[in-house]
C-alpha cells in the first residue's frame, strides 16, 4: 500500500509538471511537439518488454501478447522520434555546408518564431 501512495504522488506531481512545461508554443511547433510527446508515450514499451520477457511459465498467450505489444510500441517510439526529427529539419535554414546535427540545432536562431 505504501508503494501505491508513492506512485500516486509521483503521478500527481508529474501531471503538475506536465501542465507547467507547456506554456507558449509557436504554431509551427504544435505538430512537432505533439509528435515528440507521442514518441515519449511509447514508453509503454518498458511495460511491453517486461510482459514479453516474463518467460513461458504463464502459458503461450502472455509472451505472444507481450511480443505484439513490443512490436507496436517500438513502431511508436522509432517512428515517432524519426518523424519528429524530419519535421524539425523542414524548419531549419537550408545550409548544406553544416551537416552535423549539433551545429544545426544551434544555427536555428534565424528562424522566425
Amino acid at each position: 500500500m505504501e508503494i501505491l501512495i508513492l506512485q500516486i504522488s509521483l503521478f500527481v506531481l508529474a501531471v503538475f509538471l506536465g501542465v507547467e512545461l507547456i506554456t507558449k508554443v509557436p504554431a509551427t511547433l504544435h505538430t512537432p511537439l505533439m509528435s515528440g510527446s507521442n514518441a515519449i508515450s511509447g514508453i509503454t514499451l518498458v511495460g511491453a518488454l517486461l510482459a514479453a520477457g516474463a518467460g513461458d511459465g504463464n502459458g503461450l498467450w502472455v509472451p505472444v501478447l507481450g511480443m505484439i505489444a513490443v512490436t507496436l510500441a517500438t513502431i511508436n517510439v522509432v517512428g515517432g522520434f524519426l518523424v519528429t526529427n524530419r519535421m524539425l529539419r523542414m524548419f531549419q535554414p537550408r545550409k548544406v555546408s553544416t551537416p552535423t546535427t549539433a551545429k544545426g540545432g544551434v544555427s536555428h536562431e534565424s528562424v522566425p518564431g
Binding site: 503521478f11 508529474a14 501531471v15 503538475f16 512545461l21 507521442n38 509503454t44
Partner: peptide, 23 residues
C-alpha cells in the same frame, strides 16, 4: 505503470497526458 508498479511508466505517462491536454 500502475499495473506493473513501474515508476518510469507512471511519471512519463503522466507527463505526456498532462502536457498533451494543455497542447
Amino acid at each position: 505503470g500502475f499495473i506493473m508498479g513501474n515508476s518510469v511508466l507512471v511519471v512519463s505517462g503522466a507527463l505526456v497526458g498532462a502536457s498533451g491536454i494543455i497542447l
